[in-house]
């Protein structure tokens, strides 16, 4: 178990495209007393859609190098991205369950001068907030109840594969709705709530028209919402491209409920 201290895995999209999400996450975690320590030299997780499709063994080794940084820091790893979570959580579990793979990865990293002994635990920030940190403690920090109708989007890799996830219910999950609703916002239902955003698996990068068509159908089914809230920068970017209403990352919503000013957050949305 952790003491609310983590090796903070940034990934690619948040620091390199959507830094306002990094800003909101750092501010919110500070308010919550969750300490985030930078992982110097971390790389792409690596991208599950492309790297895991091309060469699973190489995917595992690059993921292990990131896990090794967290292990050397002495903290478990936390990520803000469903894609990074998909890679790092699944890689960590495969290494914990398969001694042969673990020793192969250790041998490779050792040869490159990196010692790797124990596989750290991997958390998604949103999952951690609900299952470990607890709604009650978050509630104490909320000083500006939001009067908003929110279309919640979970994203696939926060929920699946189920064998490596905290929530057993992937069909009708509740935990992210509850996290959204403690801000005062109301999570509205919509027909395509559980549908994939269409970005993953290399589809957005490889066949953007197909990818955006999936997103458009999803977003078209949202009625009566003031905004969409996501736990993933990739889903976020994808939905934002086809949505007429603003898309917020969860920590941005929470930051507004903590009364952190929009200009500090770099948020230009009208809600």
């Amino acid at each position: 178990m952790t003491n609310d201290e983590f090796a903070f895995f940034l990934g690619c999209l948040i620091p390199n495209r959507l830094p306002a999400i990094e800003k909101a996450s750092r501010l919110v975690c500070d308010k919550l007393g969750i300490r985030l320590y930078d992982m110097d030299g971390a790389s792409c997780c690596p991208a599950p859609g492309v790297m895991k499709s091309f060469d699973k063994n190489l995917w595992l080794k690059l993921a292990a190098r990131n896990l090794q940084i967290s292990e050397k820091m002495g903290y478990d790893l936390i990520t803000m991205c469903n894609g990074c979570y998909g890679t790092l959580k699944d890689a960590s579990m495969e290494l914990k369950e398969d001694k042969e793979k673990l020793s192969d990865v250790k041998e490779t990293l050792n040869r490159l001068g990196l010692s790797f002994e124990n596989v750290p635990n991997v958390y998604h920030l949103v999952e951690y907030l609900y299952f470990d940190y607890g709604l009650d403690r978050i509630r104490e920090t909320i000083t500006n109840k939001l009067n908003l109708n929110v279309a919640v989007h979970y994203g696939c890799h926060l929920l699946k594969p189920v064998k490596y996830r905290r929530s057993e219910n992937f069909e009708v999950p509740q935990f992210f709705d509850e996290l959204v609703e403690i801000t005062g916002a109301k999570s509205i239902n919509y027909p395509e709530k559980s549908t994939c955003c269409g970005a993953g698996g290399g589809v957005r990068s490889g066949m953007k028209d197909v990818s955006l068509e999936i997103a458009k159908r999803k977003v078209a089914s949202i009625k009566g919402a003031d905004c969409i809230v996501t736990p993933c920068p990739f889903c976020h970017m994808q939905l934002e491209q086809v949505s007429n209403i603003p898309v917020l990352y969860y920590t941005q919503l929470l930051a507004l409920a903590m009364d952190i000013p929009k200009d500090v957050l770099g948020l230009e949305v009208e809600l």
Binding site: P15, N16, M39, G41, K61, T108
Partner: peptide, 27 residues
Amino acid sequence: LGLSRIPPTTHKFEEALGIVRLLLEEG
């Protein structure tokens, strides 16, 4: 936004990028 101009990743640490490249080349 008050964040570091360059994130503390392989963008900032050349040596770490070198190891990523070695892994890719070995693969």
